[in-house]
Nucleic acid binder design. Structure first.
Lengths: 252, 252
DNA sequence: CGCTAAATTGACACCTCTCAATGTCCGTGG
DNA sequence: CCACGGACATTGAGAGGTGTCAATTTAGCG
């Protein structure tokens, strides 16, 4: 595979990074904190599509912040098939589940050409010791990930197939909004299979649901590009007012 | 309801607590760390069965360590029905998902009379600042919770009903082993409904599965008491070699 | 332009939910 | 001590959503 050059983000320092607020939530970091962080971050690594960033079992050497692109985070079952536990995009930090045993517990693979910041874990630990405020930011991030995983759990266990897909799309939409991107035009960086795997549905169901949402005039589907035509209707689907099977077009 | 007296654990200090290793994983805490922790923990609170420890939306004032008893942790959907995201028992600390926004994101309710240690969050923050090793212990705990939630996710989304129940029982069994209790005799502190809610199955399915596991000679069921007769077979069920519907007793 | 992976669509089966009835346990009060 | 009541648990019958299998179409990429 040809190594494609990654888009140069010209983002050499955290205080100029457009995702600072997502990456390190809370009030603006002090310049002292930021410079400490800058010193321990290597901001120059690129991943090609398909490249694996870390594997379950790898010793925890670094955490990773995503500058651009996206990753899928997954585990392998005993039988060897993958269980995607989430997708991570720009501004997010991955690898927190490795801290417990100092070993990565998941796999992380680039879904597209992706640019990351490497955070040396040993140095980070020392820096957090000296910078209480930064320490709290990281604890907030871990706390957030716990909440997000609980939400995903809630979604998968309580929602029907159409609700899950609607939730999934709305999640992506909100993530784009937080990054000042359009909430309506979504480029999926993952396959239908990977979506289904993450929200526990078969590829075929995902496909059928896209068709149904399309037929209902809620979205358009052009390959990996989804456009949300009606946020309100999509939210209705998420709340259970799902477009019934196409048959009942003329609802009584 | 009559207020029952809680069993007095005679556990006034963390270094004498039998769950120290579960509560604060890692090498033995230094006496300096422990005394710091002791100073900020109030170890005298009891909860009656059914009592709610915190609610989603409550400001984060404290984290809680469970000395004895058990809690269910749950969220409420928009429709108002509960989604149990886990059960917590002695030695575990709850409330980590509140750190992100300094507000509790879940509900915690006592499943039985329960004794807890209250950890003042503001004091904890300050103490963690001064005690790096203790700080790392808490980050490990949060990291662990992220892993556990991912496992639960994996279980619910990839496993069949019998596999899920087997996983659930084996989880309880392992938790008891870590506490030097019998791995085979399990007292369920939650109802069938609550089990089903947590692993995303209906009450009826839980009941039917208990019967099937019983008929297969893998467990005995006496109300809330489950005895695992054959750990190996139960593990087989977890791995998909599920006891088929009772019909095929004479498998070819 | 052709090859391969990905996506779509249909038919069918089955696991699990829902609804319903019955049985059991335990706390309460007579 | 026993009877009663309500929550909890068990069991059965039926329905429906989603997975599986299979065939075809489309898209992506060398």
């Amino acid at each position: 595979m040809t190594v494609k050059t990654l888009p140069d983000q010209k983002c050499q320092s955290c205080d100029k990074c457009p995702y600072c607020e997502i990456c390190l939530p809370g009030k603006s970091p002090t310049s002292s904190d930021l410079s400490a962080l800058n010193n321990i971050i290597d901001k120059r690594r690129g991943l090609n599509k398909g490249e694996i960033l870390y594997k379950a079992g790898d010793p925890l050497l670094r955490l990773y912040a995503i500058k651009s692109g996206s990753l899928k985070i997954y585990s392998l079952s005993q039988a060897g098939d993958e269980q995607i536990t989430g997708f991570s995009i720009s501004g997010e930090i991955v690898g927190f589940d490795a801290i417990f045993e100092k070993k990565h517990k998941s796999f992380a693979q680039a879904l597209e050409n992706t640019s990351i910041c490497e955070i040396d874990y040993a140095q980070l630990s020392r820096a957090l010791y000296r910078h209480q405020e930064m320490n709290m930011r990281f604890m907030r991030l871990m706390s957030q990930e716990i909440s997000v995983k609980k939400e995903l759990l809630m979604m998968i266990s309580r929602e029907t197939a159409p609700q899950r897909l609607a939730s999934f799309l709305l999640h992506l939409s909100e993530a784009q909004t937080r990054r000042n991107l359009s909430p309506d035009v979504i480029k999926l960086t993952m396959t239908r299979y990977e979506i289904g795997n993450c929200i526990s549905l078969s590829v075929e169901t995902i496909s059928r649901l896209f068709s149904r949402l399309h037929d209902a005039g809620i979205i358009t589907v052009k390959g990996r590009y989804i456009t949300i035509l009606d946020q309100v209707l999509l939210r209705d689907v998420k709340n259970g007012n799902l477009c019934q099977a196409a048959k009942s077009e003329n609802h009584p």
